[in-house]
Amino acid sequence: MTPKSVTPKISLKNLHKQFGPKTVLDSVNLDIMPGESMVIIGGSGSGKSVTLKCILGLLHPESGSIKVDGNETVGLIGSNRKKIQQKFGMLFQGGALFDSLQVWENISFGLLAQRKVNRRDAREIAIENLRLVGLSPDVAKLSPAELSGGMQKRVGLARAIASKPEIIFFDEPTTGLDPIMADVINELILQRVKEMGVTALTITHDMSSVRKIADKVAMIYDGNIIWTGSRSEVDNSGNPYIEQFIHGRADGPIQMEILKA
């Protein structure tokens, strides 16, 4: 029911990306409204991560447009790119914590690197963000290698929110976690996103994650967005691709590239 006049926070038009001869994104079209939590679902190798990395500017699309707050970002470099990048925070799949730095230096990395705060304040900000993700201040001086998988994800989340971004990306936030920790992470994401009023874009293949954190759901298949709808529509979409995906069936329109024995 969004009025037409609202500019989408992120708008993708005919996004095309290929690696050598292999087309990864064919023509992706997607609008994400301010304050919305969009979840992109899709199988492995369907182009979810590539879409995220294109928006972040880590990969450069062959053609198409990516608008953030109505401004074109494809081809931006230098300080203009940096300005856009400050709007983003990202939780990486494996955490991607800097293992040469302590936990608190990780969390305040963006603030320290941009000289926004001195080291003592940075440490306090880090501890405050640790509290927001349910970790005690003792964790601050550990090194990332000393943390469990779930704790690494939470520190990653703390790092993503520390510089108060307007848009947060979550790359498979629950992969590799036990179901209880996965729910804890989903709960935290939901809580942080709602409290900070940010726009969220999550990619996942975990349906329990979708049901918990999504406002809107988009399905990507073979480099195209083949379906979008609200969370409540997912379960009776009438779309055979969605049906197959959410019920996790091997038979259906989506065929994995497996040689049949």
Partner: peptide, 24 residues
């Protein structure tokens, strides 16, 4: 060290924290 940072996405993470890996 840089190779491990690359394959574990730490270099990408640095870029998303508005820090140029070339500079840092």
């Amino acid at each position: 060290e840089l190779g491990t940072m690359r394959v574990t996405e730490q270099i990408d993470a640095m870029a998303t924290l508005s820090t140029d890996p070339f500079k840092y």
